[in-house]
Design a protein around this nucleic acid. Structure first.
Lengths: 135, 135
DNA sequence: ACAAACACGAGAATCATTATCGTTAAAGCG
DNA sequence: CGCTTTAACGATAATGATTCTCGTGTTTGT
């Protein structure tokens, strides 16, 4: 080895690595490992999809979030991103932009001496319809 | 039944309900169902702990987040809350206050006709130490 | 082209969470 | 106050996502 062994990430330019990366870039949205595996139609083993997604995340080439149901979702990094507002009643989801938060996140990271990688923002509540039904 | 059946939430004032609620209030922090169950020392079945925590969450008496490892964590609602900035290198976590975001969340919810219940905000990056090691 | 190291695939193992179902105990009523 | 109804409990099985294992196939460096 040269200077220092990197980390958990994969290093080779293998079939699986290519497929996962390409497929992830093709999706403009967050996808789970399972979805990606299905989408690849068995051309790649499930475990391999997991491995490569993790590797991409570690290498900073993918962002990760947790879905509502606790699954991990990945998205290719350079995609313009947005956040969600979720209704606890009917599950309706709207995309929202969060520019003030983006700025705040950057500033806060800096304040604490962190190099910003990413952030997670979600708002949940009751939408107009469900809010009315609740009262 | 009287007017309308509520929802998935528990309605009775049962042993389990009491225990879970009290234990949750005692913790000032987020706890997982498993932790709470352990903490109760088997005085309550695991499934029951899950049931009651969910019920509290649905009733708006508890907030929920997902831990880094994907587990669900609950916290009694009225606790003053904060967010976290997490280092992807060493896992170090700092508490941060996010007043601007709180306000933004409230405003955004209103804009979309939602009754705000809660939100999730997390920032991740590399802390000063790990950031230096990476470059 | 060859050897060594890494990545792959298939399936087993984990672990949190949910569902099942017979039993126990609240709540309301006569 | 005892009875009936029905929600909640407990133990355990089932589910589902993710991780691990290990033998085999590929990529890389020389």
């Amino acid at each position: 080895m040269s200077t220092e062994s990197p980390n958990t990430a994969t290093t080779r330019n293998s079939k699986g690595r290519q497929l996962v990366k390409t497929a992830l870039e093709a999706c403009r949205e967050f996808v789970t490992a399972q979805q990606l595996h299905t989408q690849l139609g068995g051309r790649l083993g499930l475990a391999t999809v997991y491995r490569n997604l993790q590797a991409l995340a570690v290498n900073g080439q993918a962002d990760t979030v947790r879905t509502d149901s606790g699954e991990m979702a990945y998205r290719h990094c350079s995609t313009a991103h947005h956040h969600h507002i979720i209704c606890r009643g009917c599950g309706a989801t709207k995309e929202i932009t969060a520019e003030p938060v983006e700025r705040w996140a950057a500033a806060t990271a800096e304040q604490h001496g962190y190099q910003l990688i990413g952030h997670t923002v979600e708002i949940y509540g009751f939408c107009a319809k469900c809010g009315a039904a609740t009262r």
